[in-house]
Design a protein around this nucleic acid. Structure first.
Lengths: 318, 318
DNA sequence: CTGAAAGCGCTTACAG
DNA sequence: CTGAAAGCGCTTACAG
């Protein structure tokens, strides 16, 4: 009498709208009306349907529903290791903002971005170059990249403005007597590192650039009086090493980080840093994604970029 | 000749499998074969189809696909504010493990858990009591709760074993001369707080319990010589306040946290803490979810629980 | 207030 | 190697 194999069910098969309709003795769309709280349904009927819903433990399939109403949007959030509070803080804000806008958020690491394609309606994050899908050409999705090493045509972009804050930091360091600054950077050189080197240059100082993970043992021979860490986490590491070696901070060596992590308030001495308002980054990224998702004409390429400024936070380590 | 409204398209409508089939001059299932890299297709045909795929920027709808193959599983991860490294670290591990198992992870905050119901195939996390959906009865989903305040029938559960580590911590504190311990806890009293109070009791000491956010100004009158923070973040806060007030740690007051955050290594003095292996928690939770998702018989309720032990990490603050 | 029909985009047997 | 048919679970007009 029905199309299912009949008799014993193979397992805990989820109840469908048809099961509920049958149990309540109504049609499928009456179930829809009751479940989705739509008008034009007899209260008694609704109650009967909801009772059946409860009884059968029915939950609408997201697939069936998604097929029909394209409104349920899913955002792919691509971030580095959440173990780094910088990414975690950003994720926290994006999550909150996305939920407020009715989006669902799927998380992925840069390595598994391609799993996202086809599963989400838009992508936000530090996608890097991992975005190129293997076989099927570039994804048609709205993509917003945060602080990408280089612009990607067609993608939205959140750019970090570092000049003002970096100059502030350099001026601050100079005022405290810095003469031999060392900048710790990635082997491939980052925008943050270059900006610091240039700013020092403007001030008449030539900064030495070394690898971001260089231990103090290898730093000491350079006799630095200021260390620019690659990020706050690196700054924490430096602070610890300096303390272990009995080097006074900021007395002998000043240390500045980049990111503006909240935990920087808890280390000793508290870490001076180039902070960025992660909430603003998240907000800008989400706005851009929305614009890309809905806006039809993409003529003004300038529309695709949002700029968020850093600011220098002088705490105790400088 | 086709069923679409014809003529001008309303917007950037996504290409469907039918569009690709028409463009490549093949049937729908040949497109499926090419896109999903299935056997039994002429290489030339496949190339032609893939060319059309690229041209039309086609990506299979996750809804159409999901409707047919129930294999693409989605995990709902419910955690508190990722700003707390404890949750962030856990999220990082779950993400990695879930990806390895082929699951997609949707994140939600405890407040918006109900958005998840119907959108995911299982739920893991600190769901608390927020799990009760408003109208539609309890969800039929496999649910694994992490360290829940109380057991929830039918749900899987990751339990934290605190006794051993707590006794170790108390013994350690006593050896250092602790006589007036204060435990900072939630107003509603937590398992961690109660365990400490009992362990101190076993050792013949009566611990004073105060609110987790009590400032040092209100703590000082109690003349404590050991402070058990609610978690590591609270421990950091205490460390800072103590330093600001010129109180020696661990000389005058010993401080111990709970969580075992990696950043605890960077504060001064480094925070002693009750650590838990978050990777093990994540692994246990995922295993349980898998068992609940597939295992048919739920007779042995003992099967639904996994226990993960804390261990005491003596660092510098005690 | 309620229901019969059509269709969303895809895949899985089943024929050729 | 390729295609016609059926169906996954749901909602949206359209009739009654």
């Amino acid at each position: 009498m029905n199309s299912t194999p009949a008799g014993k069910r193979p397992g805990p098969a989820r109840a469908t709208i048809v099961d509920v309709a049958r149990a309540a003795g109504v049609s499928r769309q009456t179930v829809t009306r009751a479940v989705n709280d739509m008008p034009g349904i007899n209260p008694a009927t609704r109650d009967r349907v909801l009772a059946a819903v409860r009884e059968l433990n029915y939950h609408p399939s997201r697939f069936g529903r998604g097929l029909v109403k394209p409104s349920a949007r899913t955002l792919g959030l691509v971030l580095g290791d959440l173990t780094n509070p910088y990414y975690a803080d950003l994720a926290a804000t994006v999550l909150r903002l996305a939920a407020a806008r009715g989006w669902t958020v799927v998380m992925a690491e840069p390595g598994s971005v391609t799993d996202l394609v086809g599963g989400v309606d838009a992508v936000v994050g530090f996608t890097g170059l991992a975005l190129e899908p293997p076989g099927a050409g570039a994804p048609n999705l709205p993509v917003v990249e945060i602080d990408p090493p280089r612009a990607h045509p067609g993608h939205g972009r959140i750019e970090f403005e570092r000049w003002t804050a970096t100059r502030d930091a350099v001026r601050h360091l100079l005022e405290r007597g810095t003469r031999r600054p060392v900048v710790l950077d990635m082997p491939s050189r980052s925008s943050r590192g270059r900006t610091f080197v240039e700013a020092f240059g403007e001030a008449g100082l030539e900064a030495v650039v070394v690898d971001r993970d260089t231990p103090w043992a290898d730093l000491a021979p350079l006799r630095p009086d200021a260390l620019v860490a690659f990020n706050d986490l690196g700054g924490f590491r430096l602070l610890r090493e300096l303390e272990a070696h009995g080097v006074a901070v900021p007395g002998q060596v000043r240390v500045v980080g980049v990111d503006g992590l909240a935990v920087g308030e808890f280390v000793t001495p508290r870490l001076s840093t180039l902070a960025i308002d992660l909430a603003e980054v998240a907000r800008a990224a989400l706005d851009l994604v929305l614009a890309l998702s809905e806006g039809p004409g993409r003529d003004g390429a300038s529309e695709l970029v949002r700029v968020v400024p850093h600011r220098f936070l002088a705490r105790e380590s400088t």
